[in-house]
Computed example of a mutant assay.
Amino acid sequence: MAGALAQAAEWLAATPLAVAMRDGVWLYPAVETVHIVGFAILVGAVAMFDLRVLGCARRLPVDALGAHLLPWAAGSLLLIVPAGLLLFASGPAEFLGNPTFGVKLALIALAGVNALAFHAGVYRGVGAWNVGTPAPLGARAHALLSLLLWIGVIACGRLLAYT
Rank of each mutant, 00 (worst) to 15 (best):
L54H: 07
D50L: 01
N98K: 05
A93K: 10
H35L: 03
S76G: 13
L54Y: 06
T33L: 14
V31T: 02
D23E: 15
D50T: 01
W26K: 11
L77E: 07
A13Y: 07
L65V: 15
D63I: 12
L70A: 15
G97F: 08
V31A: 00
L12E: 09
L77I: 11
K104A: 09
W72D: 03
A18H: 06
L51A: 15
P92V: 04
I80V: 14
T33R: 08
V53W: 00
F88Y: 14
G44C: 02
A14S: 15
V37Y: 02
F101D: 06
R52K: 11
P92L: 05
F101P: 08
R52V: 02
L96P: 13
G102N: 05
V25N: 05
A106K: 08
K104C: 11
A45S: 15
P82V: 07
F88P: 06
G84Q: 02
L70K: 10
Y28V: 10
W11C: 12
F95G: 04
V46S: 05
L87K: 11
V81F: 09
A73C: 10
V46A: 11
G66V: 02
H35R: 02
I80T: 06
H68C: 14
L42H: 09
M21L: 12
A93M: 10
L105G: 04
F101K: 05
D50E: 11
W26L: 15
G97Y: 09
A74L: 15
L78D: 04
L105P: 03
P61L: 01
V46G: 03
A89Y: 00
L17D: 07
G102Q: 04
L12Y: 07
L60D: 07
V34F: 03
L27G: 03
A18P: 04
P71A: 07
A89R: 00
I41P: 05
L78W: 12
R59K: 15
A93V: 08
A20V: 10
V46C: 05
P92C: 04
L17Y: 10
L65Y: 12
P29R: 03
G66D: 01
T100N: 07
E94M: 10
M48N: 05
A57P: 01
L96Y: 12
F88D: 02
L96V: 14
L86V: 10
L69E: 08
A20T: 11
P16R: 10
H35C: 03
F95L: 09
G44H: 02
L96G: 11
P99F: 04
I41K: 01
H68E: 13
V34W: 00
R59M: 14
A14N: 13
L60E: 12
N98F: 01
V31E: 00
R58H: 11
V103K: 03
T15P: 04
